[in-house]
Structure formats: structure tokens, C-alpha cells
Design a binder for these strands. Sequence first.
DNA 1: AATGAATGAGAGTTCATTCAT
DNA 2: CATGAATGAACTCTCATTCAT
Lengths: 225, 225, 225, 225
Amino acid sequence: MPSPRFFKDKICPVRAKRERRKEARPGELLEAALDLFVDKGFAATRSEEVAARAGVSKGTLFLYFPSKEELFKAVVVENLSGRFSEWNKEFEAFEGSTSEMLRYCMRIWWERVGSTKASGLTKLMLSEGRNFPELAEFYRREVVHPGHTLLRRILRRGVDSGEFAPIDVDHAIYAVIAPMIFLMLWKHSNSVCVDSESAIDPATYIELQAELVLHGLQAAHKAKT
Amino acid sequence: MPSPRFFKDKICPVRAKRERRKEARPGELLEAALDLFVDKGFAATRSEEVAARAGVSKGTLFLYFPSKEELFKAVVVENLSGRFSEWNKEFEAFEGSTSEMLRYCMRIWWERVGSTKASGLTKLMLSEGRNFPELAEFYRREVVHPGHTLLRRILRRGVDSGEFAPIDVDHAIYAVIAPMIFLMLWKHSNSVCVDSESAIDPATYIELQAELVLHGLQAAHKAKT
Amino acid sequence: MPSPRFFKDKICPVRAKRERRKEARPGELLEAALDLFVDKGFAATRSEEVAARAGVSKGTLFLYFPSKEELFKAVVVENLSGRFSEWNKEFEAFEGSTSEMLRYCMRIWWERVGSTKASGLTKLMLSEGRNFPELAEFYRREVVHPGHTLLRRILRRGVDSGEFAPIDVDHAIYAVIAPMIFLMLWKHSNSVCVDSESAIDPATYIELQAELVLHGLQAAHKAKT
Amino acid sequence: MPSPRFFKDKICPVRAKRERRKEARPGELLEAALDLFVDKGFAATRSEEVAARAGVSKGTLFLYFPSKEELFKAVVVENLSGRFSEWNKEFEAFEGSTSEMLRYCMRIWWERVGSTKASGLTKLMLSEGRNFPELAEFYRREVVHPGHTLLRRILRRGVDSGEFAPIDVDHAIYAVIAPMIFLMLWKHSNSVCVDSESAIDPATYIELQAELVLHGLQAAHKAKT
DNA sequence: AATGAATGAGAGTTCATTCAT
DNA sequence: CATGAATGAACTCTCATTCAT
């Protein structure tokens, strides 16, 4: 007697033990969702699969998150936007030259975000944002905007201190962001635009780009003086 | 959850009824498909919508293309892979230094592909390739591979002529491709990772990156000599 | 540039030459339709395929027959019902014992119908009749009824002449028909209910069944006398 | 042309809304499917209709069976192939002459299969097998082959015991099967090849054919001795 | 709180039939 | 007359979400 979904791609709970701690549920769901969203994209991830990977039933997922979109937002908050206050503090407390600050910023971005699954969320928004305008708007508000604000603050610090040239900060932001976005895409799309293996070493790439940007920011300064 | 459907434009054929345009149809369909695929992605584009935008009914689309996947492949051939033979010839006939050749290559890539809708196909493959393995394979075979081959030929020319350092050509390819891929993503995802408008001027960016790459290729050379 | 149906199962006209005689068209269509209906069934036969096999276009088919159902009816008339008047005459003119007549009847039925493609129409009606009530009704009226009438006449002749027992003619009809229907099914469904090849020789089977039936009709007679 | 759809009964679920009947569902669906497949054939039965007759929605059907074809296979297993093991045992335990065994075999075949809806599946395969090769292959493997094997065993028993002539058992099988197939078609196609009602009494027909077959099997024996 | 059976709108694809040429 | 491009209703199957248990 065939039970439901007997013949389909097996979706079976991962957690064997009954050790489900109630409080841990949302976290487990968020983790499962992150994995799957990053792996398959938003539209292509089935909510049942998220639930199964978290070791709960479909119904439970909707108990904690009212919809797939809200689940996604929660994943974004958990992995990206929720961490800005910590980062902001870190940079407010930073002592040292703004050049070091920027270098440090790019380096730890790679360590804490770029090299983790969380960076897949950015790739996901780039890919599917158009099809889910509400998510795109949320992401812009909660991630893009705070991120830009943080960077803008750093750059302005450098300009104000005379370390950087008096550039248009809003434009300069992209010189910093571009290589990071590129790296993420590289990481999450290997199979499509790469023929041979490992043509880029991310850490080296980041250092290089940091130098390049700083060179630019300072060169501009010197040129003007 | 409001499905992607929710936001879609209303679907209504544009043209008069039962107009016979056998010659023109495939082209019109391919154009409509390109527009929609680039705008919404492969999965989120409904075939009926493609048909409607081309001014025909759902059935007519399947008269010309046996499936959505084949339609996509045809779009790729029409806009990307079908043009490699022309490009290859152009570069075989190129006279001048390899540096000029590479600079020219990046420049016209932006003019003829990067700045057009066709570049959206690359973004699409980066986004959805994992969910449509057959399309990904097709794209790799028909676009990525020929593209890499063309670039590899150019780089090798420079190495052989002594103009470039004797670098690992297969790796160097990515130094050229990376900024182009980034630009495309930039272009097709404006709304997601950009706060203010047009912070990057593509043409300038390309020139800059070209210089950067050439500098690297030559610097390496000089360092060794 | 893909032309219509380029990728699909090729359906291409059979007749190469331009020797299409206008008057012959309907006949060619009927022949093609008979072939395909018998081979694939009514529902599963595509009208375009019928047209192609007859060497004309889809449109032409509908010029001669207003619908697929009417085409089928025409095929039935051409191959079965239209031939009853001839058969009736033949039997009216028959001289000899009714036993010989019946034997002859079954034998030539096999030769002229059972062993030809036309018998596939009967199998088709048995199979799909329920799904096409109008066709079933037509077939009953035009084929089953005349056939039964002819047989009834023969049987009654035997009863009247005292050659057969005074049986219920209406029931006895089925003793004659049953083996013929079975043979047809045998012929048209080999692949499904037969494991090894050619387990039945139709001609022999018919003779045998004829003897059996006659034996029964006469035995009943003798038993009563 | 009025398509088959035209004649279909209106589709409306019977049961109350959202009733949970996990245990009972598969059985109810199989029964509904059997009814409809037998009534309309495989191709002409719409899955939504099967669901509706079982009192559930379209989606629920696909919760239990992954496709229409798998549903059909399950119906075949449930009603035919799944019962062979029981039948095989019954015949292994049979005590008595092989003649009695064969007579018994044909008789209970009629009682348990021929006279039930299940026999419609055989008619269906005869009709539509060509259009659904995978189903035909399944049916051959799961029903035709085991059935032939069972019969072959019985016949060989008779030959080995000297009760039957040393005939070619593989051919003789068809002498037994033929009348059963005919009866099934008769039953499921009444409206098409029958003018008046109930001209055949199945039980009597089976007994008659059994005698006929046994007569043949034994006569051949005597003739040789 | 948790489950998972049930729902139903919606997607890709087919094909009898129409009708402009 | 003949063509074949075009139509659109119908079909199978999917999956986010609901809700009885």
C-alpha cells in the first residue's frame, strides 16, 4: 500500500532521535532553509523539504513562519541583517588608520560572510530578486542599505581625516563592494562559468582588491594635492 | 504566499487575429523569450507569456519550439553561441599587438553582448543553472567553452610573442572574464545591490579592468626578465 | 531557423510525385485513415498524420471530411457496411445446402474481412466504442445490424428447410459470430495476450468452428427427432 | 468534433471536505480507478475524475500514486497479478484428475475474474496496449506470463500423467485462453456487437468450451494410441 | 504544539479544427 | 481547391498552504 510520496524523490527527516528541543526548532528550520535556499534558490526550494531537513513536519514549518517568504526574511535577518549592530559597534570601536580599517573590513567580510553559506543569499537575491519584489525590497532595506551605510561611514572617516581624497563617497562604495560580490558569485556558481578548477584564491583576491581600492583612494588624493 | 504569478503583467496577445507570419515568427518568439527570460528567469517565465508577447497564442509557440527548454537553447544560440564563428574570424584577422587585441576584445564584448539583453542569459545561467542541468550543460558547451577557447587563444598569442609573461593561460582567463561577469550582474540586478543610481560607468570600468589585467600580464613578464 | 514541427516526430507526406488525381483523394485519405485507425485506435490517431500519409495537408482532410468522426464513419462505410448489399445478393443467389452456405459464409468472411485490415475496425469499436457513443451507434446501425440480419436469414433458411433444428435463431447467431470476433482480436492484439508466436492458424480455426457450429445446429435437430 | 470529454459525467467530489482517511484512500482510489479505466479506457480516463469518484481532489490522487501510469499498474496488481500466488497454491494443492482441474480452473476464472470488473483490464490492454508500451510490457510480465505459466503447468501435468495426449503444451494454452478472452470482450462491449440482450450465458459457455477443449486434448491422445 | 492528509490554482504540452492566403 | 499557420480547450502533474486530528 503506497504511502504518500512513496514513489517521489525521497524527502525524509534527518534527525533520527527524539531529542528535539522545542526552543531549538526555529533555529533548526532557519539552518535547513539557509542550506536549501542557497543550494537551489528560493522558488525551487520546496517548503516540505525545508521541514524534512529540519526534522519536523510541513505543518510545523508554517507554525513558526507564516509563509515561505517570511521564512526567507527570517533567514536573512539571522544570517545578515541581524549582525549589523554588532559590526557597527566593532567599527565604531576600531582604532587605527582608515586604510587598515578598510582592509580589515574586507578581510573579515570574507571570513564571516563571503566564505560562508550566508553569501549565497546575496547571490540568490541577485538571481531571483526580480521575481519576488517584496523580498527584494526587504533585502535592500535590511542588508544593502545598512551595509552601504557602514561602508559610507568608513570612507567618510578616511576623507574627513585627510587619509583619502575628497571623493564622492557614494560612488566609491561600489569600488569596495564590486569585488566582494564577484567573489560570492564565483563561489556559488562554479559549475556554470568555470571550466577548470580553482582559478581564484579568494583570500588573495580580497587582499589584492583591497590594495587596489586603497591605492585608488589615496592616489586620487595625491593627484589632487 | 503571493506566488510569482501574482506580480505578472496581464497576458494578452498584441497582434491581430490569425495573422500569418511564418517567416517572422521564430524571430519574434525568440525576441520575446529573450526579454522575458532575462527579466524573470527561466523557471518564472511562463510559456504562454512568451507567446502573448510575441503576439501569438500558446499553441503557436509549441509549433516552432518543441519545449520551453528548446526555446531557451534557441535563444542562447541566436544571441550568443551562434556568433562565435564570426568573432573567431574577427580575431584571426586582427593585426596589432596582443595588448590591443585584448583591450579591443573586452571593449567590443561590452558593446555587443554585455550592454545588451543577451548578457542577461549569463546571469540567468548563474542563477538557475543548478535547477536545469541540461540547460547548464548546453550553455557550458555552447557558450562557456567557446568563449574560453577564444580567450585562451588570445592570451597564448601574447605569451608566444613574448608580449606577456609565460603565465598559466588557463588561470589568466579568469582575470579577464571576472570583471565582465561582474558587470553583467551589476546591470541585471541593479535594484538589489545598489542604493543610488548608476554608480558605475560600464565603459570606464571595462577600460580600467583591461589596463589592470594587461598591467598584471606584462608586470609578471618584466618581473621574470 | 526552426520550421513548424521541426523537432517533433516527423510527419511527412508519403507521396513524392505530383501525380495526385483529384478524384482519388478521398480514397487515399480513407486508406490512410483505415491504416492508422487500425494501428493506433481512433482517439490516438492524429488527423494530421492521416493527411500526411495520404500525401495531402491537414486542411485538405477537413475539406473532404468535416470531422475526424465523419472520417471514421466513411472508413466504416467503405470497408464494411457498404459491402453488405453485394454480400446480400451473393447469398440470395446461393444454391446449395444451408450447411454449405454457412460454411461458405464463415470462410469468405475470413478471406474478405477477417484477414484484412478492415477487421481492425471491429476491434476498434470493441475497444473505444464506449468513449465515442455516436460512432458506436453508427457502427451498430450500419454494420452489426445488417450483419446479424444476413446471418439470421441464413439460419432461418436452414431451420425452414428442416436442415437445422428449430432453434432460437437470434441466439444461435452468436455461436457463429463469437469465433470470428475472437479471431479478429487475436489478429490485432498479438503482442498483448500472446507469449509465443502463431499459436493459431486462422483458416483451420474457422473451418473447425464452422463444423462445430453446424454439428450443434444439426445435433439439436437430431436430438429432437 | 465533440471530444470524448463531451460525454463525460460531471466531476464532483462526493465526500465531505478535508476528511482524513489515510488508511482507506489507496483502496478507494484503486477502486475508482478500476471502475473508470474499465468503463472508459486508460487514455480517456482523466485523473481528476478518478479522484473525484474516490471523493478527493486531484492533488490527493498524486499524493498516493505518482502518475496515471503507476496508478494503472497498482490497479493491475491489486486486481490481477497480486492474486497469482494464491491461485498457484490452490492449484498445487489440487487433488483429482487434470481434467477436473482444468474444468475447475476455467470455472473459477470466470467467477473470480471474468465476471468481475477486473476482466475489463484485459480488454483495456487489448485495446490500448499499443499506445502505452510500458503498460503493455508491465501487463505481459505481471499478468500474461504468470497466467500462461500456471496453465502450462496444468496442461503438462495432464500430459505427464498420460491423461492428455503429448501435445505441444505452449500451443494448447491458447485453446484454453481464447474462449475466456472472448467472453471478457463480450461482457465489456455488449453495446457494440450485440443486437439483442444477453444472447450468451457465460457460465454455460465456459462449461461448453471446457468440454470442447478437454475433448480435443483427450481425442488427440486416443488418436495416437 | 505538532502532524501530515488534503486542497486547488497553475504550469507545460497536445491536437482537432479553423481560416487567411 | 489546397495549404499549413494559428488557435485554445483539455490534460497531467506540482506545491504552498490549510486544517482536522
